[in-house]
Design a protein around this nucleic acid. Structure first.
Length: 625
DNA sequence: AAGAGCAGAATTCTACTAAG
DNA sequence: CTTAGTAGAATTCTGCTCTT
């Protein structure tokens, strides 16, 4: 009896029927030849011996491969025939088990039982499959998806929920990165309405436009999460957790727009969540009353945070057709206007203003109540100076020209735009490009290498060694400068240490540098910069200088990392994805440190019901049948 | 529909610095 | 000297588009 292999990638069993392959046919019809060859390979060992069996497949393969093509085709045809109809009676012998020819086949003799077992097995497989599909892993569980580290986030509706912070407050960078990646990816896919990879580069390019500024920490640059430094990861996750605790998943984060190519489009968020009566996600594409197109000066006028910027700026952005702009139209009108920042160039406000959609009459956003003058939170970008004279007086001068396809814009005569206000100009450029929809007009090297290559002169911010990194560096720099209230030391503290070092290094080669500010703060480690906007939590973070006050529990796996305790020191020989131990409660910590319940479930669990276990059960069934 | 080619996302590796 | 953390380069993987 030849049992079909079961599929290993699915619970669904393969229908039980015979399938004969060329090797099978050859093994039967050329048995003597095969036996001779196998015995030769096995050093003369008799059939049935261990040596004979170990060489059987080799010998069979040798015979099969040595068949003349014509004969091979004949046997292949026979194999097909045997599979589709029935093999000859002699082939159907139950000779695998030495059963006499006259004996009934097992599945014939116990037809009903075999049927029942098959049904039960199928039911069981479906049960497991449903279980795996419907019971999500615990929030925050790191899973391995084809070798990729991925974190499992629970959903509220379709929106992801961040797991609560671990008791000790210490989360590894890769954990936070995975969390950010998954969180943004889910949102991005909801925003664009399809499952596509997250274009981190484009998100970085348009980061000042794509979401409300309160939804991203100030002075933190968007980039691929694997490149986001730990401090920034913590800021991001901390901000989101705070917002999540205040307003739930719907107010934690939300794309207003999502990048498409070099441009952006209003977020769709076509999810079940749209049925919820939230302020932010309303599916109905409200068609606002037609607004008169303002003059450029009007379009660039200075709305305050309390004004409805969307009413005054509907023209300066490539607004999609109104029926296709639900996200824009549903956006609360007062949440994202940089109204209190004195140092930002006008172009920034162009970037901020232009994506505004038409006003929505009354869609309150309870969690977002801009009070720029009273509480400019450091955790989110809260621009100041709504009375900024710059905004009021010179916006039109820096308004990016609206490119017209086929019309090459005048070369920018003012490198000041680029040099002084990198991200703002970038934003404006992106918008301008999006307006015109002509890549040749604006060659943004951050998103289009080809354009940069072909027209390097079109963007004064780009020279031969410029490009994405330089632009991103500028963007980072401008992000750093977003908060004029920060003290000088704070300003340095937030810079990724490597940035300063790198800059110096590029000048002085391998010369030892002292550019790292933290080095001058002997009692502060890097973690101290993590929460410069939340000093209260500083003490919760494990200081790298401190060693564990007690030895790690012997039953702790050697590679484990207690959440609340001190991460075990030791360089990983090879960078490995976050392991489950990263999420285990600290066994070495004191009782007050240890969480009552493990916050994260052991990795595995359901996942172990994947291939191996099912295969083993299939093997059992094989034996059963 | 299948496969090739490509762009970009994701991951891994390496070099480096600060700190213990 | 060891280790954590970081940036950047290199490599791998994946999804999309285009061609046949």
């Amino acid at each position: 009896m030849v049992l079909q292999p079961w599929t290993t990638s699915s619970c669904e069993p393969v229908p039980i029927h015979q399938a004969y392959f060329l090797e099978y046919v050859v093994a039967h019809l050329k048995q003597e030849e095969v036996y001779l060859k196998v015995r030769e390979l096995a050093g003369g060992s008799p059939p049935g011996s261990k040596a004979f069996l170990s060489k059987y497949q080799t010998g069979l393969k040798y015979i099969v491969e040595g068949l003349p093509p014509t004969e091979k085709r004949v046997y292949e045809a026979m194999a097909k025939e045997w599979s589709e109809e029935a093999p000859p009676a002699d082939v159907q012998r139950n000779d695998e088990f030495g059963v006499p020819d006259s004996a009934q086949k097992f599945e014939v003799m116990f037809k009903e039982q075999v049927l029942e077992i098959s049904k039960a097995w199928i039911t069981y497989c479906k049960h497991i499959k449903d279980l795996m599909a419907n019971v999500p892993a615990e929030n925050g569980t790191v899973i391995q998806d084809c070798g990729k580290k991925k974190i499992c986030l629970q959903l509220e509706g379709d929106l992801p929920i961040l797991p609560p912070p671990p008791v000790g407050g210490h989360e590894h960078a890769e954990t936070l990165q995975a969390m950010i990646r998954e969180f943004i990816t889910i949102h991005y896919q909801l925003a664009c309405g399809k499952k596509t990879p997250t274009p981190w580069t484009s998100l970085a390019t348009h980061q000042l436009i794509l979401w409300d500024t309160q939804m991203w920490p100030a002075r933190v640059m968007v980039r691929d999460p694997s490149k986001i430094v730990l401090n920034d990861c913590r800021k991001i996750v901390q901000l989101w957790r705070e917002r999540q605790s205040e307003g739930g998943a719907k107010d934690t984060f939300k794309f207003k727009f999502y990048p498409v190519g070099d441009g952006i489009q209003p977020a769709i968020y076509n999810t079940q969540f749209e049925t919820l009566p939230t302020s932010a996600v309303i599916d109905t594409p409200t068609v606002p009353p037609a607004l008169p197109s303002p003059t450029p000066s009007e379009g660039a006028s200075t709305p305050t945070a309390r004004e409805c910027p969307t009413a005054s700026q509907p023209v300066s952005y490539p607004m999609p057709s109104e029926e296709s702009t639900p996200a824009a139209s549903r956006r609360p009108p007062t949440v994202d206007m940089p109204s209190s920042h004195t140092s930002l160039p006008d172009t920034f406000f162009q970037g901020r203003i232009t994506p505004m959609g038409p006003p929505v009459p009354s869609i309150p956003t309870p969690a977002i109540t801009p009070e720029p003058q009273t509480a400019p939170s450091d955790r989110a970008f809260t621009p100041a100076a709504e009375e900024s004279p710059t905004m009021q007086t010179t916006p039109t001068q820096v308004l990016p020209s609206i490119p017209t396809p086929g019309i090459t814009p005048e070369p920018r005569s003012a490198p000041t735009n680029t040099l002084v206000s990198g991200p703002q100009v970038l934003t404006a450029q992106a918008i301008g490009r999006n307006r015109g929809g002509d890549k040749e007009v604006e060659s943004d090297p951050t998103t289009n290498k080809r354009t940069m290559t072909h027209e390097p002169e079109s963007d004064p911010s780009t020279d031969e060694d410029g490009g994405r990194r330089r632009i991103q560096a500028r963007l980072q720099k401008a992000l750093e400068a977003q908060s004029p209230e920060r003290g000088p030391e704070d300003n340095h503290e937030d810079l990724p240490p490597r940035v300063g070092r790198k800059k110096t290094k590029s000048i002085s080669g391998k010369k030892k540098t002292k550019t790292r500010k933290t080095s001058s703060l002997p009692n502060q480690d890097n973690h101290s910069t993590n929460n410069d906007d939340n000093p209260a939590e500083e003490h919760q973070l494990p200081c790298r200088k401190k060693k564990p006050t007690r030895p790690i529990s012997p039953h702790l796996p050697s590679d484990s990392t207690p959440i609340g305790g001190v991460a075990p020191r030791g360089r990983k020989a090879k960078k490995t994805p976050a392991t489950q131990e990263d999420f285990s409660p600290s066994p070495s910590g004191s009782d007050e440190d240890a969480p009552e319940e493990p916050r994260y479930r052991k990795r595995g669990g359901n996942a172990r019901w994947s291939k191996e276990r099912l295969i083993s059960i299939q093997h059992l069934q094989f034996l059963l049948l």
